[in-house]
Design a protein around this nucleic acid. Structure first.
Lengths: 137, 137
DNA sequence: TTTTTAATTGCAACAAGGTTGCAAGAACAA
DNA sequence: TTGTTCTTGCAACCTTGTTGCAATTAAAAA
């Protein structure tokens, strides 16, 4: 099973809940929040989802997508490990339908930051209106 | 008074609370969260701070800085109005001291986004360790 | 000035997102 | 089998932020 393989690669013990949560993330086309995962998986307690997402994050399995006023979202990293996150891209958050899109093939332009600051991660979030919400008006 | 002038320019009635909150933002070297403002101003109720920040935001007086897992922060716009926000820059959030810095002279590189998406705002947030936290270790 | 109307304030209660303590259950090794 | 560790689910809690409402204040009209 794909899920077990991924968990194994990140040194996480495979349990039924973890496989289910991972599968939910795998199936989704856009980043999911904790509550979206809970809604899709009514059998799993939110405390388990919370702890599982923390675990996945700590093991470098997830990207954390910060969409602003709303809640934190998570998406699977394609090619990242705990040490190296090579899979960063730009996100677009629709202020109407509240969905977050990944612009996979547009990578965030590197910028030079002032001396003394140590960069660990980047979050490039564009807000606006997505095509389907734009057309709906 | 500078504060009254700024409020007037954004068509906001000047009250004692609003002037105090604006002054707090003016004095700060980095973006402030609602709670940081409440801490500095113990006489003003947090509901007033909340409503005031909403008002300031609606009138284009503030930048909203999303620092991720923690809370929303606000900073004064230098040159923005309700219609045009020309004063966007990159922010750096220190994961240790939780302070957010503005990189004033590094403007976010424009990127071309896919067709159909309408861009309204950009948030470019770098996370890492700031100079003083780096030196403290 | 007095009256009427509208805006602002402060308190408390609430809501959403998320975390934590803890006891019970499952997995696993000795 | 027994002991140890990990995982789970429930409830309680915390934090950030908003809202209902009555009281106060400010502004406008008479």
């Amino acid at each position: 099973m794909v899920e077990e393989l991924i968990l194994q690669q990140h040194h996480i013990k495979a349990t039924a809940n973890r496989i289910t949560i991972l599968r939910t993330l795998l199936k989704s086309k856009h980043p999911l929040s904790m509550n979206e995962i809970c809604d899709r998986l009514e059998t799993v307690d939110k405390s388990v989802v919370s702890r599982t997402l923390t675990l996945f994050r700590e093991q470098g399995m997830l990207h954390v997508v910060e969409n602003g006023n709303e809640c934190t979202e998570y998406e699977l990293c394609k090619s990242s490990t705990k040490e190296h996150d090579t899979d960063q891209h730009i996100h677009f958050h629709c202020i109407i339908c509240k969905k977050t899109f990944c612009f996979e093939n547009v990578s965030p332009p590197g910028i030079s930051i002032p001396d003394g600051f140590k960069q660990l991660s980047v979050n490039y979030m564009i807000k606006g209106i997505c095509p389907s919400c734009k057309n709906a008006r």
